[in-house]
């Protein structure tokens, strides 16, 4: 993989790394922070894109596709993550599914909605108590290494993984 990525946005790096790892199914419930990434993915014929009504569906579609031989990732925001706990605990974890989650982190570093700030604080304790590998990406320079490493590890170890997009990556002026 090329190390010369200085002009790429974080979204472009994510797209490139997903393609390099043959992650070709993307399911999402949208978020403003994810909007440019979603546009790039929808414009690229490499990807099959499904936008269901709820995050649980997004997780289940990726799970079904994995069991039938296709790699996928589910995109959502923090409050959406809070709705999938039962699906993680009863489907992704016990069935040992390499379910990739990309979660745009709301509720911290400048949040204006109290509900987002409160639900945000549940995310890491839930991931920890379920034993799910997770990492918050804060810098564009780390995107390629972290995404590539977590995707490869998820499939190598048949375990779900959560890639958290920190506001330090997505909101801070470059």
């Amino acid at each position: 993989m090329s190390g010369e990525t200085t002009n790429e946005t974080w979204e472009e790096i994510v797209v490139r790394v997903l393609k390099a790892n043959e992650v070709s199914l993307v399911t999402y419930v949208p978020d403003n922070v994810l909007s440019r990434l979603i546009r790039l993915i929808e414009a690229d014929p490499f990807f099959t894109v499904v936008a269901p009504a709820r995050e649980e569906e997004a997780v289940a579609i990726v799970t079904g596709a994995y069991m039938a031989g296709k790699r996928g990732i589910a995109l959502m925001q923090t409050s959406g993550f809070a709705t999938i706990v039962n699906a993680l605990a009863s489907l992704a974890c016990p069935f040992q599914i390499p379910l990739l989650l990309m979660i745009s982190e709301r509720g911290t570093l400048g949040e204006f909605q109290q509900g987002q700030a409160i639900v945000c604080r549940t995310m890491r304790p839930v991931l920890q108590s379920l034993g799910i590998e997770h990492f918050a990406i804060q810098e564009r320079a780390h995107v390629e290494f972290v995404v590539d490493g977590m995707v490869r590890q998820a499939f190598a170890t048949q375990a779900p993984a959560a890639l958290i997009l920190s506001p330090l990556l997505t909101k801070r002026a470059a």
Partner: peptide, 22 residues
């Protein structure tokens, strides 16, 4: 056959994922 355990409501989206992949 896939026998779902616990994730009530998700049989149809799991099947949809299978149908998309194959």
């Amino acid at each position: 056959n896939f026998y779902m355990l616990g994730s009530m409501g998700l049989a149809t989206p799991i099947a949809l994922g299978v149908a998309i992949a194959q």
